Amino acid sequence: MKKLSSILFVLFVFAIPAFAQQQYKGLPVIKANAPAADYKIGKEWTKGSWNIMPELVPDVMLVPVPGKKVGVTFRTDRDSISFQVKPGKTYQFYVQLNEKDYALTELRGFGFEGIQFNKAQKVAGYTFLYVQNQNNEFLQTLREQYQLDALVAGAKNDTEKALRIVNWVHNQWQHNGSNTPSKPDALTILAEVKDGKQFRCVEYGIVTTSALNAIGLPARTMGLKMKEVETIESGAGHVVLEVYLPDLKKWVMLDGQYDVMPVLNNVPLNAVEFQQAIVNDYEALEIRSLSGTSKGKYIGWVFPYLYYFDVKFDNREGMALQREKIDGKSSLMLVPAGAKQPKVFQVKNPMDYLKYTHSLIDLYEAPKMAQQDVLSAK
């Protein structure tokens, strides 16, 4: 009888979570008092960065799944819930905030799917303008005022210079996705940072690009956009930059917001190479960062943005330049083979400034630094 009682007690204990799990509209509910939550994907916790937002229906968390499935735990200050998330599957639950509002939360698993571009074309179809750092008053001011030469002094190669610059910019301010500067140039942004302002990924890209141009490494900001860029209402884009490293003779992606340079087999990667390495060489892929950015967290966050890639035709630096265009368009977007050419950003913002290409060489020709006056489609 004692043995039977013990068995019943064990069964009762293990049954408690099933009976205790509340439901709302047929979905499980966890409770929270604080609006910030933690989550764990695989073995890695991210603490306090998820905001519980009942106004978003649903509030979607994209979950990267490198293999067939990954364990995910969502934890509030009062409760937690766990799932085994698979690619292409969704998992919904409610978070009841302060015993009142219900936040419909959705975990959306995605795998690392490859995309293809035209590699057959050997001659670029467009010209781009890149800055001459000699006798450029804007860049000289930036270089001297912020002592950029001292920052890169002693660097063994261009890769190390780029890593030092992106780390320096990363540490200038904390990210704030709501603020914009009074003028979108590096000197204005850094001056306003001194006054206590914080800015978006856009401004990390602008300042890092200008700082690299100031030390003689050709650089350009790059817009990354999700496949669903036209239908997602917010958060459909991210801004990074690419720098051309003369000693390697290649373009390399940097992310100033996260202090990141992707590297595979000791070779820094451009944005498209980064996307392909995530799909094909995840284990060997390195996220190089002087501030120690997590590989898993960064790749899981940035991968959905690595679908559309756009850069400006005119990448010169200065305060009052008349920007050159091609056929009235200011930027070129690299579109995966067979993919739609997006015309709208986040439901309601026309992207009427773009020309489109499927060809890698159009985006990744080495910069020609000779003086150029006119842009053209070749």
Rank of each mutant, 00 (worst) to 15 (best):
V65E: 02
V65R: 06
V65H: 09
P66S: 03
P66G: 00
P66K: 05
G67V: 06
G67F: 12
G67W: 02
K68R: 02
K68C: 04
K68S: 12
K68T: 05
K69M: 11
K69P: 04
G71V: 01
G71K: 07
G71C: 00
G71A: 00
G71I: 00
G71M: 00
V72N: 05
V72S: 01
T73N: 04
T73H: 05
F74P: 12
F74T: 14
R75N: 04
R75M: 10
R75F: 02
T76C: 04
T76V: 07
D77Y: 05
R78Y: 02
R78V: 02
R78E: 10
R78A: 05
R78L: 14
R78G: 02
D79T: 03
D79Y: 04
S80F: 10
I81E: 07
I81M: 13
I81N: 10
I81S: 10
I81F: 10
I81Q: 09
S82C: 11
S82K: 15
F83Y: 15
F83T: 14
F83W: 15
Q84G: 08
V85G: 13
V85L: 12
K86Y: 10
K86F: 05
K86C: 07
K86P: 04
K86D: 09
K86L: 06
P87Y: 13
P87N: 13
G88R: 05
G88E: 09
K89D: 11
K89N: 15
T90D: 14
T90Q: 15
T90H: 11
Y91M: 11
Y91V: 14
Q92P: 06
Q92F: 10
Q92A: 12
Q92M: 14
Q92T: 13
F93A: 06
F93T: 08
Y94K: 08
Y94S: 09
V95C: 01
Q96N: 05
Q96I: 08
L97P: 07
L97Q: 07
L97N: 04
E99L: 08
E99R: 11
E99W: 01
K100R: 15
K100L: 14
D101M: 08
D101W: 03
D101E: 14
Y102I: 06
A103T: 04
A103M: 04
A103S: 09
A103P: 00
L104K: 10
L104M: 08
L104G: 06
L104H: 09
L104P: 08
L104A: 07
L104N: 02
T105G: 01
T105H: 00
T105E: 04
T105C: 00
E106S: 13
E106D: 01
E106Y: 06
E106N: 03
L107K: 06
L107C: 11
R108M: 12
R108P: 08
R108A: 14
R108Y: 09
R108I: 01
G109D: 11
F110N: 02
F110I: 01
F110Q: 03
F110T: 00
G111W: 02
G111E: 03
F112Y: 15
F112E: 05
F112C: 05
E113V: 11
G114R: 12
G114T: 07
G114K: 12
I115C: 09
I115K: 15
I115S: 14
I115P: 07
Q116G: 05
Q116R: 10
Q116L: 07
Q116Y: 10
Q116M: 01
Q116V: 00
N118C: 02
N118Q: 06
N118V: 03
N118F: 01
K119A: 12
K119V: 11
K119W: 07
